[in-house]
Amino acid sequence: MLRHDGRSSDQMRPLRIVPNYTKHAAGSVLLEFGETKVICTASVDEGVPSFLRNATPAQGWLTAEYSMLPGSTQTRSRRERPSPSGRSQEIQRLIGRSIRGIIDLTKCPDFTFTLDCDVIQADGGTRTASITGAYVALKIAVDKLLRSGKLNQNPLTDAVAAVSVGLRDSAVLVDLDYQEDSTADLDMNVVMTQSGKFLEIQGTAERAAFSKEQVLEIMNAAEAALNPVFDLQHEAADGREVES
């Protein structure tokens, strides 16, 4: 099945990762899934939130923030002041949960990692692009801490990436753009690790219920699509711009 942009049903959009995209953050990337573009940065601060100060064993913390810049969509979106919208809060919690699933925070006590994901152009899949890029930004930051001796052991236990998969007329479509997302019968976001484990599966039927068999088909399609992405992430974390 050919899609409106010429892709096959199991084909992701072109992926591009530009590492060290900004100057001051400990880790940063520009990540593009087709026309969706997200800047992801990782900042590192000493100290942890108050609820962790007396934790046993001592541990660090990781949190995430997400926003869509006003010019990222066809109609200007308003800046989220004084607090993020419900959608943005839900997405930044998803990013935080996903990345905390592959970091051992007891190996980085007294450090707080903040991942900022700012969408500069949106064409569907902004949350999955944010997760995929945030991991690379974090790995760049962690590698710097290891080289400087501020960390004695690597707290990252795995790699993580994400992709959206949808159903339309019973066909499974990988990596939906906005046009496909807005007309899909089902849109599911799949977050998984390089070792093949799933961290989160978010799915909502838009027009009709879906079966267990369809869920398994979607998970298999997501796994096949993401396997090459992990190699690109690691290449980018080593400082090389990569494209698929």
Score class of each variant (00 low, 15 high):
14 P>L: 06
113 F>A: 03
22 T>P: 05
203 G>Y: 09
188 M>W: 05
65 E>S: 11
227 N>Q: 15
30 L>K: 13
237 A>I: 02
44 V>A: 13
25 A>N: 02
156 L>E: 04
18 V>A: 09
220 N>M: 05
84 P>I: 00
145 L>D: 08
97 R>G: 00
47 G>W: 06
134 A>I: 00
175 D>I: 02
131 I>S: 04
12 M>F: 05
58 A>T: 05
176 L>R: 09
14 P>F: 07
232 L>I: 03
174 V>L: 11
111 F>N: 05
17 I>Q: 09
128 T>P: 11
200 E>C: 04
207 R>W: 09
32 E>I: 00
204 T>W: 10
71 G>H: 13
187 D>N: 14
154 N>E: 13
7 R>H: 10
212 K>N: 12
29 V>F: 05
31 L>A: 14
59 Q>N: 06
209 A>T: 15
125 G>W: 10
172 V>N: 09
169 D>A: 14
234 H>P: 00
28 S>W: 03
123 D>V: 01
180 E>M: 04
235 E>W: 02
69 L>G: 10
172 V>A: 08
117 C>D: 01
45 D>K: 13
45 D>N: 10
138 L>F: 07
56 T>H: 12
9 S>L: 14
135 Y>T: 01
229 V>K: 06
38 V>S: 04
110 D>L: 06
28 S>D: 04
133 G>W: 01
59 Q>I: 00
132 T>H: 09
165 V>I: 14
241 E>R: 10
43 S>I: 01
143 D>K: 07
192 M>K: 07
140 I>Q: 14
109 P>T: 08
85 S>Y: 06
31 L>Y: 10
22 T>L: 13
122 A>C: 11
5 D>V: 03
83 S>W: 08
44 V>H: 08
147 R>V: 12
239 G>Q: 11
18 V>L: 13
91 I>L: 15
238 D>A: 15
218 I>S: 09
20 N>E: 14
203 G>R: 05
68 M>W: 09
213 E>R: 13
74 Q>H: 14
149 G>R: 11
24 H>P: 00
204 T>V: 11
